[in-house]
């Protein structure tokens, strides 16, 4: 067989080269602006706190954050807290995404079940999950289990609803096509419905990345002995704003990193 995807060296016209150049230039401008903006915020923050416009006791400051970070790292405490929060978040994220998808498959499979459970799902979805907090703490105790359960409560219903909608949105004619080729319900599920929903599944992953952090931190606020959420609450209670800011900053980096990984997975699938 001929190899079709031959690398062809195309000589672009001058106008096209200019077009590409402009795109590249815009990209550089945007990236530099982003970096400059960050540097400006940090710089002004440091400046204002050091000259006394802002009180570092209430607003902390970049240098104090760096100092706190240094102490934390050298005492080895930081890694423990990060590890605990990351573990809870990932566990909640994976379990919620998995369970939610399984639930969506069951609901897709049986129209009866779907109709029976519909009002419950609607109510559960509308309920602010934080209201379940005290109940969860009483049932599961203080610590990791409660936090993971909180995280699951937050992500589960939205995962189920999104995935079910995606399954049900599959083109009726495509299902007819599968049937006309003699497919049974399992084959329709595995060869059509699930692969067809990959795009939506990745969107759900993206949403769940954010939601699972919300769940974990909320859980840690309610009941915890360690973790970044614990540090933030603790820091707030004893007025150690350096600690609050440092933990928040790390949280930003972690959540951003996790989102970035999902975005990479998405890019791979889009090819």
């Amino acid at each position: 067989m001929k190899k079709r995807k031959k690398e062809v060296k195309i000589d672009f016209s001058i106008s096209h080269k200019q077009y590409l150049k402009k795109i590249k230039k815009d990209k550089i401008i945007i990236l530099t602006s982003q970096i400059l903006l960050l540097l400006a915020i940090i710089g002004l923050w440091e400046l204002f706190t050091s000259v006394g416009v802002l009180d570092p006791f209430f607003f902390s400051s970049p240098s104090r954050i760096v100092k706190t970070l240094g102490e934390f790292i050298s005492s080895g405490e930081l890694l423990t807290h990060i590890g605990i929060t990351l573990y809870e978040t990932l566990l909640g994220f994976v379990i919620a995404t998995f369970l939610g998808t399984i639930l969506a498959i069951l609901l897709w499979w049986s129209e009866k079940l779907r109709k029976i459970l519909d009002p419950y799902i609607v109510v559960l979805n509308a309920l602010p999950k934080i209201a379940l907090g005290p109940m969860i703490v009483i049932w599961f105790g203080i610590g990791t289990t409660s936090i993971v359960v909180m995280c699951i409560m937050i992500c589960l219903i939205i995962t189920t609803i999104s995935m079910l909608n995606s399954f049900l949105a599959c083109d009726k004619d495509k299902i007819q096509l599968m049937k006309s080729l003699g497919a049974n319900k399992f084959q329709i599920l595995f060869k059509l419905i699930l692969p067809n929903a990959i795009g939506d599944f990745i969107s759900v992953l993206k949403i769940n990345v954010g939601m699972s952090w919300v769940g974990t931190i909320m859980g840690e606020y309610l009941s915890s002995k360690a973790g970044l959420g614990y540090l933030i609450v603790y820091g707030g209670q004893v007025f150690k704003l350096d600690l609050v800011m440092t933990a928040t900053l790390i949280l930003c980096l972690l959540a951003g990193g996790m989102y970035f990984i999902v975005a990479r997975i998405e890019a791979r699938f889009k090819r």
């Binding site: 083109d171 007819q176 049937k179 003699g182 067809n196």
Partner: peptide
């Protein structure tokens, strides 16, 4: 059903 070939308005090729 398995003895029949069905063609629709759209081609319904699976993009994946």
């Amino acid at each position: 059903t398995s003895k029949i070939g069905y063609m629709f308005q759209k081609d319904h090729l699976f993009e994946w």
